[in-house]
């Protein structure tokens, strides 16, 4: 897909995030979904080998949203890629919906792993990549981690294991938006120096602009050429990206949306009737 098409897809994902947030009961996680919209657009519309008609295809690339609270971006990408009808986005978090409050592989077509309890996704991805190697398959396993999430020790257990087993088919992103649930990462529990930490654990590390679709795609291409070690991008992002009053305002880590806020956000994102979910 061209750069322009990927940027357009990221814009549509952001519109879906706002619309599904408004349709959902109670609060949803707008900020942490908006920050990964571009990464999800590149993964699902450029990088990943998929078949929406056959979500369980054994040779597909896998995606684990380890920061499960970014679900709104994932659900939109899956719907727009054809795993289920876009109309389902309106049922987000409703009783009996296929779109649960956090990603659920048993309820949502295309979700490769259940997540929501932070710190677990990288270990799951390690297992998937090990199995791929054992079976001599060439699929890649992608993971998106939160920069607050990596405070969990289990992430570093998995980081160690991925390097120990030289899992070059494992490609991760740290969504470096600088915020977590109750405040900034720096005041809650510093994770710096980030690139150095991953390097010290034996990973191929790059720092990229997490909102530049070309940079994201180029990183994935280089990561795919790596041999004998996993890759991670420290993706510098803005929490709430794309909606001025949500950017870097941690109220939108998780919040309900008034009709007026929803309409303002959609105007900023250039939403038209045709973009409707």
């Amino acid at each position: 897909m061209s750069r322009e098409s990927l940027e357009e897809m990221a814009r549509l994902i952001r519109i879906d995030i706002i619309r599904s947030a408004y349709a959902a009961p109670g609060a949803t996680h707008e900020g942490p979904a908006l920050s990964i919209a571009d990464i999800c657009a590149v993964l699902y519309f450029e990088a990943m080998r998929l078949d929406p008609q056959n979500p369980a295809w054994p040779d597909r690339d896998r995606f684990v949203l380890s920061k499960g609270h970014g679900y709104q971006a994932l659900y939109s990408a899956l719907a727009r890629r054809g795993f289920f009808d876009l109309k389902e986005l309106e049922t987000l978090r409703h009783l009996h919906s296929i779109l649960q409050g956090h990603p659920d592989m048993r309820k949502t077509p295309g979700v490769d792993a259940t997540s929501g309890s932070l710190g677990n996704g990288l270990g799951i991805a390690v297992g998937m990549a090990l199995a791929g190697r054992l079976d001599r398959k060439d699929y890649d396993v992608f993971v998106v981690l939160g920069d607050g999430e990596i405070q969990e020790g289990s992430i570093w257990e998995a980081a160690m294991a991925a390097a120990h087993y030289g899992l070059s088919h494992l490609i991760a992103f740290v969504d470096r938006n600088g915020f977590q649930s109750t405040g900034t990462v720096n005041e809650t529990m510093r994770v710096d120096p980030l690139a150095e930490k991953w390097r010290a654990f034996g990973w191929n590390v790059e720092e990229i602009d997490g909102h530049d679709v070309s940079a994201i795609a180029a990183f994935i291409q280089r990561a795919r050429c790596q041999e004998g070690r996993p890759s991670v991008a420290i993706a510098h992002t803005v929490k709430g990206k794309g909606v001025s009053f949500m950017e870097n305002n941690n109220k939108w880590h998780m919040s309900g949306l008034t009709r007026e806020e929803m309409e303002r956000a959609l105007v900023e994102l250039g939403a038209e009737r045709g973009d409707a979910a």
Binding site: A113, N120, A125, G127
Partner: peptide
Amino acid sequence: FGIAEQNMLGAAGGLSLAGK
């Protein structure tokens, strides 16, 4: 998996998801 039970169980989950 070394002395790291949390990751070991997560990886077991991942292995099972890939058919093991």
